[in-house]
């Protein structure tokens, strides 16, 4: 099972990019499963299931941060995708506090940023960008060539090893190289570890237990199929 984790701020076009990737994966005979991790509301799973007829699921992180939730449920999700006879698991997750990143070693880490969010954005998103394998820049037709180039240079300043791909997800421009990257990713290892070092904190992940799967944790744990509705304050 190949694992792709797609992160990025809200409204950057993560789902639009993944939709294009799913279409091309299906065309090339690869069946993906789709998991959406969000805090309290998401409907992308239903839209994608309807559009492509592939297995989809969502999980609400609720009182956990989405990256913490990801660590908890990814182990289960890999088993689920395998049971559904898929070759790729695509995980879409919201990036929120910008102190850690959801990517795991052995999986493809993809951050989606929009060119319209200002030239300094790459300097502000931290490990979500610097720990990614590829940075996908969307909405490139909306900004001047100058800002597009400055945006790109700022990404390279922050994350020199991250490969940049510029796309127009609405027109499907620039998607093929992403699909090639997905297909070139080796199957994810059985035991998976979070790629980055999380910030200081008191939960098991925050204190550095990085192994994926709720079985490896104590305190607040969460299997994939346990849904709680989070109301916040």
């Amino acid at each position: 099972m190949r694992l792709v984790i797609c992160a990025g701020p809200a409204t950057t076009g993560k789902t639009a990019v993944l939709r294009n990737i799913i279409r091309r994966l299906l065309e090339s005979g690869n069946r993906p499963a789709f998991l959406k991790i969000d805090v309290q509301y998401a409907e992308e799973d239903e839209q994608i299931a309807k559009e492509f007829n592939i297995p989809t699921k969502k999980t609400y992180s609720g009182e956990l941060c989405p990256d913490h939730c990801g660590v908890m449920v990814l182990g289960d999700a890999m088993l689920w995708a395998k049971k559904e006879n898929c070759q790729v698991l695509l995980v879409e997750t919201a990036g929120l506090c910008l102190r850690c990143a959801p990517y795991v070693d052995g999986g493809l880490g993809m951050v989606v940023l929009e060119a319209t969010s200002g030239m300094n954005l790459p300097l502000k998103v931290g490990p979500m960008l610097s720990l990614a394998d590829i940075a996908v820049v969307t909405k490139i037709d909306r900004v001047s060539q100058a800002e597009r180039e400055v945006f790109r240079a700022r990404i390279q300043d922050v994350a020199p090893k991250v490969r940049i791909h510029e796309v127009n997800a609405l027109q499907g421009i620039g998607i093929d190289p992403l699909v090639e990257r997905v297909l070139a990713t080796p199957p994810a290892p059985e035991r998976m570890f979070l790629r980055g070092t999380p910030p200081v904190g008191t939960c098991t992940i925050c204190v550095g237990k990085k192994e994926v799967g709720w079985q490896a944790h104590f305190g607040v744990v969460r299997p994939l199929d346990q849904q709680t509705f989070y109301r916040g304050e």
Binding site: T116, G118, M119, I140, D141, R142, V143, S144, Q145, A146, E147
Partner: peptide, 9 residues
């Protein structure tokens, strides 16, 4: 590329 939507932000 400069389109009708392209602008400076």
């Amino acid at each position: 590329l400069i389109t009708q939507h392209t602008t400076f932000l």
